[in-house]
Every structure is written in C-alpha cells, then in structure tokens.
Design a protein around this nucleic acid. Sequence first.
RNA 1: GCUGGCGUAGCUCAAUCCGGUAGAGCAGCUGACUUGUAAUCAGCAGGUUGUAGGUUCAAGUCCUAUCGCCAGCUCCA
Length: 601
Amino acid sequence: MRKVIPQWLDTRRHSLAHIMAQAVLEKRPDAKLGFGPATEDGFYYDFLFATPLTSDELPAIEARMRQIVREDEVFQRGDLAVDEAVAQLEAMGQEFKVEYCRELAAAGNATIRLYRSGDFVDMCEGPHVERTSVIPDDSFALDSIAGAYWRGDESRPMLTRIYGLAFETREELEAFKARRELAKQRDHRKLGKELDIFHISDQVGQGLALWLPNGAVLIDELEKLAKEMEFRDGYVPVRTPHISKSRLYLTSGHLPYYKESMYPPMQLEGEDDYYLKPMNCPHHHIIYASRPRSYRDLPLRLTEYGAVYRYEQSGELAGLLRVRGMWMNDAHLYCTPDQVKAEFIKVLELHRFYYSLFRITDFWVRLSLGDPTSKKFAGSMDSWETTEDMARKALIDAGFPFEEVRGEAAFYGPKVDHQMSNVVGREETASTTQLDLVMPERFGLTFIGPDGLEHRPIIIHRAPLGTHERFVAFLLEHLGGVFPTWLSPVQVRVLPVSEGQQAYGQRVVDALRDTLLRATLDASSESLNKRIRAAEVHKIPNMLVVGKREEADGTVTWRRKGHRLQVTLPLDRYVAALQETIARRLMDNFEDVEVPGFAAG
RNA sequence: GCUGGCGUAGCUCAAUCCGGUAGAGCAGCUGACUUGUAAUCAGCAGGUUGUAGGUUCAAGUCCUAUCGCCAGCUCCA
C-alpha cells in the first residue's frame, strides 16, 4: 500500500524545497539550513531561526517562490573536494551542513556535491530539475509549520520545519486538498463524538478513554469474534490483574528496558513497589510456569483481552489511536521449536481472515527487526538471528508481501506488524505478532521433552485485533462510521408511522429483543421524515416502518440505511433474515453484499 | 516531552482584528400537529467565554502562568 512516487515528481518536489530555502534565506539571511527532502505529497525544509518564524509569513515566502519559479533559474551542479566544501559551508555559516559534510567525508566520500540556483547554494546530493520553469507556479503551496529535531534526535536542537504540498498540476494540488478535507469528516474523533462511541475527559486523565454504551457494544462484539476464533484455534482463556510487583518486571526486563513507557510505581510502606502492567506477557509467563509442562501440553495458547497501561508522552496521544490505557487482543503461544513455524503461520492466517472480514486492504506488513548496535534490545545476537529468520520464513511461506525495517522490533524479539494510516495520514501499528526467545530464558520457562529432559519453549506474542482503542479508531475511519448490522450498537430502529401504531411498534421491538437483536423504538412525536433522517444520521443499519397496514397484517416494512428500496414481510421472516445476516457476520454495509430476505420485488 | 497554533452553551459556529460587559443553528425540555419514507410549527431553558493571576474606568477580546486540544517531531499497540 505504500505509495510509489515517480522519480520526476520526487525531483520536482525536492527542487521546490531548495527554492523555498532560497526564498526563506532572502527574508532571514541568518537562518541555518537542516535537511530539505521530498515527501509523499510535497516537501519540507528544516531551518534554525534566531527569532521564530510564524505561519503568517508563509504567504510571502510562497509568493517569492512563485516568482523564483517564473524567473526560470537554472540548477547548477558542482562537486568540491571535502576541504573546499567545508570551507565554503563554514563561510556561509551553515553549521548543520558542515556537520553532515564531515560525516559524509568520514564515511569515505571524497567529494561533496553542491547545487546553485540563483544566488542560493546548498550542499545536496540532487538531483534537481534543470530549470525552475518546468514547475507550474500554481502546482505547489506551503502547508504548515512545525518543530522537528535536528537529525530526528531529541537531544539535538529543535528546528522549524516548513511543509509544502506539490503535485504535477494545480488541479492535482486542489484535488489533494479537497480529499484531505473530506477525509477529516471520517476522523474517528469526530465520528466517535457524533455516534456516542467514546469520551475522553481530562478529569479522568489524558489518553484514558471512556467507552460509552454504543462503544461498549462495539468492543463486546469484537471480543465475541475474537473468542470464537481463538476457541476454534485451541486457545484457552486466562485472566490476570492490572498491577504487579516490580519483581515481575525486573525478571521480564520491562524494568529497565520499558521503564520510560510505564506509569510510575505505587509505593507502599515496607512492600515491594507495584506497577500498572504495560503488557500482559509477564503475567502469562507466570501462569505457564505455575506447573511443570510437558511437550504434550504444547503448544499452550493463553489468551486474554487484557488491559494494559502505558505512559505515552503527552504529545503522542491522539484520540483513540494513541492512548494510555488500552485493552489488547493478546495471546501468548508457548511452542516447542518444531511447532513454532506452523503456529506462526496460523496466526498470520488469522490476520488474513480478520482483515478480509473487515475488508481492510490499505495496510502494509512490516517485518520489524532488532538492531545490534542499539541498547534497546535484550538477548543474544544468536537468538535474534534465529527468531528473525523464523519470522521471515513464515511470512514467505504464508504468502505475505512485507518490508523489513531495522530497529522497530520489541525489546525481546522481532515483530510482524500490520501498519495502517489514519485519515490524517498518521501511521500506526494495528496488529502485531512477535517471536520471543528472550522471555523463556528470563523466566526460566521449560517443558519436558520426549527425552525426559528440560527444554526451552519459544513464545509467539500476538494481537491481531490490536487494542480495542486503536482498532475501533481504524474501523470507524475505514467504515466512515457505518457498521455492519452484526457490529452496530443499534441494529434496528422501529418507526411507528403515527402514535396509533406505537403499541404495535413496541411489540415489534420486544419481539426483536427477545431474540437478542438490538432494537429501539423511536416514539417521539416528530414527523416520520424526521425520524428516518435521525436514524440515517446515526447510521443505524435497519429501519422498520410500521403503520396501519403492517399492524393489520403482522408485518414490518424494512428500509435499510442508504437504500430507497424497501420490502414488507412478516415479522418472523424478518427476524430470521436478520439473524442469518448477523450469524454470518455479513458486511451488509457494503453494496455488493447480498442481504438475506432483502431481495428486490 | 519539544516546536507552533487553538480553547466561547451538549454539538457546530458568531462576537476577538480596532477592549464597552455574549448571539445563532442543531440537540434538550414544553405545547400544538398524528404524520407512509432524509429536518412540521411555536415557546422555554442552556454560557461566572478552560483555569488562575495581571493591565485597564471597563477584558471573551490585551499580558503572564497553568491545564487541555490540534498539527508536526520524538516514541509506540
């Protein structure tokens, strides 16, 4: 799903970054330049300013850029020896460029490339457009301004980043902006409010979501789904507390490897400190270790929709997408070495099932590897190589296209992540599967093999539905808040045509609720039109209109959300049809799905 | 956590630029209407303008601090 951007467009965008830097330097000659690359929909350039730049200044910079483009400046390339380049960049006062230049030299580059356009000279690899006039002067626009650390390192200075948008033509630029505006309508924070899904109150705490009744139905249905799937695949449920003594996390290594992300401890006189659990795994490992295990017991698949708490930095929180308290579709599979691969593939298949059930196609799969040069990862090189190789092979065998990314692993092992983007384009991990040789070691987990000796199990950590919070966020945005009947908080809204049919309407609701269908009656004295509109606005999948005719015949007139076509049928036939839709978890919110009982005519 | 922007009724917004003491629609409530497929009409109620200081005769509007939200960075399910 990652976008492929044609080289020429990338070149054009990068050239625009130079043109922007040129325009900025004219206004702020003392600005220090950072990096200025092309992005997925434009470009940015980082600057260090003596006095802060405000977004009010962007229009003037943009206007100057257009002028430069029209002046048809030529990009001239020049390769200099390292010393010369350093001397020149120092003379220009470009300390960040000097730093990077020296680094390139240290990495073995004999020459440094510079580009000149107009009076502006910048150290840069290129390539650029030959002359600025090839860029339509209305195909780009400055977008926003934000802080960004130099070299992405929070211990280094924070620069000011100016983002620009750039496309082939003005029409494409306008289309992009329009699409972005439209996407905001599907923002889960907006839909979550409109549909009464969740509420976040700073009286409770940042990042601590409250599930409203409608949201609670959603997560109940997701849990039901997960429990069914896991039951079939031989998982066994467990339940564990939300807190634990620090000892557990010293054993697991969460202290110190994960301490940054944990809430501070609860301290009690004369007792060990207690921590809120940031992950369920240690509790599950203790369950595994609670009695001797035989190879005949394996794989042991412990599952729990467990609550975990992570102290995310305040600036990272975002609606339900990034929270501090979350319920995770967690499970740990304890396997013998020769079971791992088959189990891992089975877990990947489960992902495939879920993603196709929800019709989610806009994701990409990342194989997240450790980084031997980083202190963020526990365990030996050998075990990392083993698990990384296992994960890679399983992905290939299961037929998953994936990309490998170094340094993204969990601290105890490599991960296979399903990456999704929200409406604003922010990417997050929706699902994760991990391989772990480190925890069995740390917890001294063993099983007795056929040879009568103790062996180490291998652990698969998996959360295909991620956390309720993040998964519902993605689902809301992906479906635009329009849920299939099986997931919908309210499945059926009954609308009496006039007050005379309210009693019949109530009987219909009672009959539906008797069969566990989530039905409500709209008994307000508003016009039928208004009540239909209200049901549509609340995205209720099914409406039953009951008037004199229906009451006389014992029928209901069924109108599905977004459809003008409607059918009248006996109540019991309606119930049967709806139950089939729900039992099969049909995605009846999609046009191409044939809905039982709703044939035309 | 950092950089920048923004906080006005349950929601969406107006009054902020150029200080003169807060207004609308929707939702809610009441009444009338008894409705046949996307907003019936009328009325009522609702805000010490996030919070705390300050400047001023006067602050929603200006200043400071603080809390929260948004975008990005860093970080992650």
